[in-house]
Design a binder for these strands. Structure first.
Lengths: 119, 119
DNA sequence: TTATGTAGTTTCCGTTTGGTAACCGGAGTC
DNA sequence: GACTCCGGTTACCAAACGGAAACTACATAA
């Protein structure tokens, strides 16, 4: 019996897979968390550190720089003392919110399943 | 001037962040792609290898095992010759489709922005 | 005077990741 | 008899990732 490769209905992800594209933006550690917390409004560096226990200053800086380069967040230095820096989602960043919400939703289902498996 | 930590409206992600939970499932390289291709119907190992150019057998195996352990996909060995193994999304796995779709959607926007930046 | 807060940067280092290549058995094909 | 296909497994390796800690500068507060 010969096994043939079946044609499936999945759109053939043409030039440069948008899935891979988007995952490269929100792929790093803590990245989705950062977007999640910014979705509630602008936030300062140290506030984000408190929001996300476990993230190091180094990684948080790296993520914020990378997200800024992707055009997902904006960075605004306020002339306060000590100086404070406010990060916020751009219009493009706001587009990520539904994706993040969908992921959170599945996260809940996963946790529920885990609870069942435990029992 | 004293800077105070502002209370934001973001739900405080209580016990064991569902976001992190879900990202640990679809975090590895090629994982979203695998789910994407399975969303169109069951698929064999070698078919997935053809679907996703660039994925190595080692990583594909690792992802499929891990997704199976998470309860996201099912694995069925068919008594053909040579033996074939069919992977499919479970009910839980189907729940991931909206999340994947949302990510793909943003991926398109990101690519559009890129084109604009180029110009 | 000393300590604190802000927003990082830098260095070092261990772990993880993912790619490459070789190899496996069994059945069918040429 | 040799070769291919299928679905993997294993060993090896370089690169990337991310954590910890120390350090910066400036200004205010105790």
């Amino acid at each position: 019996m010969v096994l043939r490769v079946r044609k499936n209905q999945a759109p053939p992800t043409p030039e440069g897979c948008p899935l891979t594209e988007c995952m490269s933006v929100l792929g790093g550690a803590w990245t989705p968390n950062i977007i999640w917390y910014l979705s509630a409004g602008p936030r300062r560096f140290s506030e984000l550190r408190l929001d996300i226990p476990g993230v190091s200053a180094k990684v948080l800086t790296a993520r914020l720089r990378s997200l800024e380069a992707s055009g997902v967040i904006s960075r605004e230095v306020k002339p306060t003392s000590p100086p404070s820096v406010e990060y916020a989602l751009t219009d493009l960043g706001e587009e990520l919110i539904p994706a993040i919400n969908a992921i959170v939703k599945v996260g809940h289902k996963l946790k529920m399943r885990e609870a069942v498996v435990q029992a």
